[in-house]
Simulated scan of single mutants.
Amino acid sequence: MLNPLIDRIFDLILTQKVWQVHILAAELINCGAIKPLDKNPERDLFKRNFLIMNALYQLQEQLHPKSLLISTLHIELIETDIESPATVKSNLKDYYLDWGNYEASEEQINELLTSFWQKFKRVNSAPALAEDHYDALLAKWQLTNDFSLKELQKRWRQLALAHHPDKPTGCENAFKQIKVEYEQLKPAARS
């Protein structure tokens, strides 16, 4: 189903380089493009954000999978020279393009909001990382979403030893890269 917000959102993202979902939502409410969707405030928030994210992902597919960067805290239309990019896959994209998720239960909405605020806390305290990049780092480092500083430090020592340039199998570039990744992950670790 084609989302009726696509054109309005496209018009808005052409006016400003970077957006955030809550600012986009406020703008859509102010111009009357979105009316209240539910009497329950949490369900109303969920449905509003679902419609916006659904429209963004549909717009991304229409433009170019790589020409519209989408995360909750960073939405940006970028120029790209890629003529036929590979399709970008993500769990969030799959979730928001499935209209069956629009009618989530109150329990599901509470779980999603709790998860969002946990990620928001992590991302807000960490250097700006795209959500997909952050998830990829967690997978690469073999860490769970709720990793501790102690777990991160242990994994850092393991990777540093394995890639240290003084080791016969070491690599200076790989060592430098994991150091950068360690610094990106450190603020998100729980104490």
Rank of each mutant, 00 (worst) to 15 (best):
N124P: 01
P165E: 10
N124F: 11
N173C: 02
L138W: 02
H133A: 08
C171E: 14
Q158N: 12
W156N: 15
N145C: 00
L152V: 03
T114Q: 01
K154N: 12
K121R: 06
K121F: 01
A139T: 14
D166S: 12
T114K: 00
K140G: 12
G170W: 04
H133Y: 04
T144N: 02
L161T: 12
E131W: 04
Q153K: 06
G170H: 05
R122F: 02
V123Y: 03
K167R: 15
R122A: 04
E172Q: 07
A160P: 05
H163K: 09
F175P: 06
F175T: 06
A174M: 03
P127L: 05
D166Y: 05
Q153F: 01
K167N: 15
W117H: 12
H133S: 08
W117A: 06
K167C: 13
L137Y: 00
H163C: 14
W117R: 07
D135F: 07
E151L: 05
A160L: 10
H133V: 07
S115A: 12
A126M: 14
T114E: 02
F147L: 09
P165Y: 05
E151D: 09
F175Q: 08
A136Y: 02
T169I: 08
T169H: 09
L129I: 13
D146V: 00
L113N: 05
Q158M: 09
Y134E: 02
R155P: 03
E131C: 02
Q118L: 13
A128T: 15
K150V: 04
H164W: 07
A130N: 09
L138V: 10
Q118S: 07
K121Y: 01
V123F: 11
E151T: 05
A139V: 12
N173L: 08
A136V: 14
A128I: 13
L149V: 08
A128L: 15
P165V: 03
A126T: 14
E131Y: 13
D135H: 10
D146P: 00
A160H: 15
K150H: 01
S148I: 03
Q142P: 00
L159T: 06
S115M: 08
R122D: 04
H133C: 03
S125Q: 13
K119D: 15
S115W: 05
A136S: 13
Y134G: 04
K167G: 10
F147R: 11
Q158R: 10
Q142I: 05
K150W: 00
K140R: 12
K150L: 01
R155T: 12
L143H: 06
D146I: 00
K154M: 05
A126Q: 09
W141G: 11
L113Q: 04
A160C: 12
N145W: 03
N173G: 03
E131H: 09
C171N: 15
W141Q: 07
D135M: 08
L113E: 04
A139K: 15
L137V: 06
L159V: 13
D132A: 03
Q142C: 08
N145K: 09
H133L: 05
K154Y: 13
E131F: 11
